[in-house]
Amino acid sequence: MQRHFVSYAPRFGSYKEPRPFLVKQSPYYWWWLALTMNEEYAKLCEQQQRQRASTSRDSFKAQPEMLKVYGDWGDVRYDGDRYRAFCDWWRNRVNTNGEERGVYLSAEPLRGVWTHIVEDGERAAEYAEHDDWLVIAVPLPQQRRYVDKSINRLLKKHLPSEHGKRVDPAEHSQALYHLSKPVLVKRLERALTLYELKHSQRGKRMSNAKLADTVGLTTKPSQKRMANEAVDGRAQKNTVATLVSRELRYARGMIARAGVGKFP
């Protein structure tokens, strides 16, 4: 039976040569990428690798939450193409059911029983005593339109809809690892790309304005500023610096939380 995802599950196009534009549409990819950027988690991966290769002891001690994440996510370090690395990590078979790691960690639990007809009296009595079930008796000779009205009335009373909310919102997910809130993938991409760029040799030589421009981080001038013929260059520079700092702070938070099993 196919598992359900609350958030958009990754598409690859090709397992041998995943298409980046498909992979990047899934927030699960950005979660994985944030974890690969977590230096403490990388140290843990290195430690576990050394311990498996020898009996030497290591002084590095990871926090319990990170050890739990390692037990589930494993070693996420990679060389070469990151999209292929993510694809291989996601599709790795991990449990006794032969599930892919990504499905096992991120999909919703299988629902045992859906809406169905109960033909056994004892079973109907069991459902009637259970808080998670609603038992409805339908007289078959009754006209269909009256049955529909009665059922709708009962459902409105006992199963109210949540107007204005997404179906299966991220915060209500029952997956082993789920997003803490709905996210905009473009924001994840922008923040983590900026973080990578900032910490690269190339980024160290770039101004905030150039960094912002590279990741598409722009500011919309206010009506007052648009009315002025001359824009205060220093004010603009400060605004850009503030935006870059905000995105970097968001990226650092994502990377840190990924190490303890939370995102974003």
Score class of each variant (00 low, 15 high):
G112W: 15
V113P: 01
W114I: 14
W114K: 15
H116E: 10
H116P: 09
I117R: 13
E119W: 06
D120R: 08
D120W: 00
G121W: 04
E122R: 11
R123W: 09
R123Y: 08
R123K: 15
A124W: 09
A125R: 11
Y127G: 04
Y127H: 13
Y127K: 07
Y127A: 11
A128N: 09
E129S: 10
H130K: 07
D131Q: 03
D131W: 00
D132I: 02
D132Y: 01
L134Y: 06
L134N: 07
V135I: 08
V135E: 06
A137N: 11
V138A: 03
P139G: 04
P139C: 07
L140E: 12
P141S: 03
Q142A: 15
Q142D: 12
Q143H: 14
R144H: 12
R144F: 13
Y146I: 15
Y146R: 11
D148P: 00
S150P: 01
I151N: 05
R153N: 14
L154Q: 13
L155E: 04
K156V: 08
K156S: 15
K157H: 13
K157G: 03
K157N: 05
H158V: 05
L159R: 11
L159V: 10
P160R: 08
P160G: 03
S161I: 09
S161C: 07
E162G: 00
H163V: 09
H163G: 09
H163A: 13
G164H: 05
K165V: 00
R166F: 03
V167S: 07
D168H: 07
D168Q: 05
P169G: 02
P169E: 02
E171N: 04
E171R: 04
E171H: 06
H172T: 06
H172D: 12
S173D: 01
S173C: 00
Q174V: 05
A175D: 00
A175S: 03
